[in-house]
Design a protein around this nucleic acid. Structure first.
Lengths: 170, 170
DNA sequence: CAAAGATTGTCAGTATGCTGTCAATCTCGA
DNA sequence: TCGAGATTGACAGCATACTGACAATCTTTG
């Protein structure tokens, strides 16, 4: 049998590669989110940050970055923009001069309540083309994969560890 | 029956949302790619662009953006960097002064050959935590979803349409 | 042919995401 | 206690991504 020739290098191989499909799907997800939420002037990242601060009032930036798996550097500018829009406020921590604690403002809590339906529509639209059983299957596999690959990312999710200081760990 | 209370808004809802999972998986995929390919100084985006130019020599930037579903604006700087690294060259099109045609240099073709094994390792690692049957299932669903959602993204993939000018359409 | 319209590459502006560095500050061990 | 080491927030720099605008150029149409 002749030795198998090297597979031709073409763009079609890229179309079937997991990395390409993940990038593409993220692109699509952001696009749908922005479309459904265009009345609110909030990005997916800013939304996630608001929800996290709402869930953990008084969290600091470093712990927040672990809770939503954002880069610590990136998060700085996200916080700045949320503060500029008056959705959050930062208070110095009395017992540690390095830390600034994050809280939702009334505006922030209000927009969070208002945007929820749009976000739910967006999340539904992303999976809409699939049959209901396939949606479940896909989400199940994705949850597994993201969890099992957690440490492969530079900023692994540390939902639990990050919150011990708030007295909610355990 | 009492009316169902509004679901509490917490970060846990975000962890299960498709948009969050896609973002996270993309983050992980890029991280794995960069790790496997760190010897080559090529990003996933730059790799895809090189492959596409290799598959379609003499393509122009606008068509290239359709073939790999990149934003046309973003692609400009990607091309610039590939050119700075001497992996591609741009030649003016004789029949249209607006267009610059893209070609791989010898360096570009060489690095493409060399990086393939690392890219394959990276793609395999992304799915490694899943059982083989689950990998297939996930890829199948993702291919479907990306295809069916193609028009939802701002820069839909136009693999076929884009190539008519090269005499390869049909 | 000339004007209207479309296309191409480019640029400015905004928003993630990452690497790396730094000063201020805190913690812990000798 | 004091100094080494860790932590925190901030910053610089690079690389996607997207919106919107623009001049140069090409195409279509009246």
């Amino acid at each position: 049998m002749p030795s198998k020739p090297a597979a031709p290098i073409t763009i079609d191989a890229v179309y079937a590669a997991p990395g390409y499909l993940f990038r593409r799907m993220q692109q699509i997800a952001v696009s749908i989110f922005m479309e459904e939420c265009k009345a609110f002037d909030l990005t997916p990242v800013q939304y996630a940050a608001l929800i996290a601060i709402h869930t953990h009032p008084g969290i600091d930036a470093t712990r927040l970055s672990a809770v939503i798996a954002f880069d610590r550097s990136t998060l700085g500018s996200v916080i700045e923009r949320l503060q500029a829009k008056d959705y959050i406020e930062r208070k110095p921590a009395p017992e540690d001069k390095r830390i600034k604690l994050l809280y939702l403002t009334k505006s922030g809590a209000a927009i969070l309540r208002e945007i929820i339906p749009a976000v739910k529509r967006a999340q539904a639209r992303m999976l809409e083309p699939l049959k209901p059983a396939d949606r479940k299957a896909l989400m199940g596999l994705l949850v597994q994969l993201v969890d099992l690959n957690n440490d492969a990312s530079r900023v692994p999710l540390r939902a639990e560890d990050a919150l011990e200081h708030l007295g909610k760990g355990g």
